[in-house]
Computed example of a mutant assay.
Amino acid sequence: MYFCNEYMAVNSPNGTRLNTFPDFIVTADYETGRPISTAELKEGAEVYLLGSKWTNMLLGLGVRYRAPYKRLEDALGIEMIKYLDGLFID
């Protein structure tokens, strides 16, 4: 899981990309089901990892421009843009 204030990407154990922001990505406590923020997540915690593709949600225009994703790719050292076919309006 990669995050920068929010979850940005989730890969499977074999490296396959499962979700990429602006997909819905959330962790929830295994016992209570309550959401856990990135700040609350602790190593070794048992959690559910839930995700849904961006195509299932209504998105604001602000997440549909390519430039911020390029900066995130550079900062996180991961690819994002190639996983977001059809998102961008520029």
Rank of each mutant, 00 (worst) to 15 (best):
L72Y: 08
D85T: 13
L87F: 00
G77R: 09
R64A: 01
A67F: 07
G86W: 09
N11L: 15
F24M: 08
W54Q: 02
N5C: 04
L50N: 03
I81M: 01
D74H: 02
T20S: 09
L18K: 06
L50H: 03
S12R: 14
L41Q: 07
E40M: 13
R17N: 08
M1D: 10
S12P: 04
G77V: 11
L59M: 05
K42F: 01
T27C: 13
V47Q: 07
N14R: 07
F21Y: 11
I78H: 04
T55R: 14
L18P: 01
R64C: 07
A45D: 15
L84Q: 01
T20F: 02
V63A: 08
G60L: 13
P35D: 05
T16P: 07
R34C: 14
E43H: 15
Y48E: 08
W54P: 02
E43A: 15
I36V: 04
T20D: 02
N56C: 10
L18W: 07
P68S: 03
A67P: 06
Y65W: 11
L50R: 05
D85M: 05
G15H: 04
N5Q: 11
Y2M: 08
K53W: 07
S37G: 07
L58I: 15
V63T: 11
T32Q: 10
Y30Q: 10
I81L: 02
T32K: 06
I78K: 04
I36M: 03
E6D: 12
S37Q: 06
V26P: 03
F88S: 01
Y65R: 15
I81T: 01
Y48W: 14
T55V: 13
M80E: 01
F21W: 05
V10G: 01
L49I: 10
A67W: 04
D85I: 04
R64T: 08
M80Y: 00
Y65P: 05
V10K: 00
D90R: 06
Y30A: 11
A67D: 10
V26S: 12
M57T: 12
L61K: 12
G62H: 12
S52C: 13
P35I: 07
D90C: 03
E79L: 12
L87Q: 00
E6C: 06
G60A: 12
L18A: 02
Y48P: 03
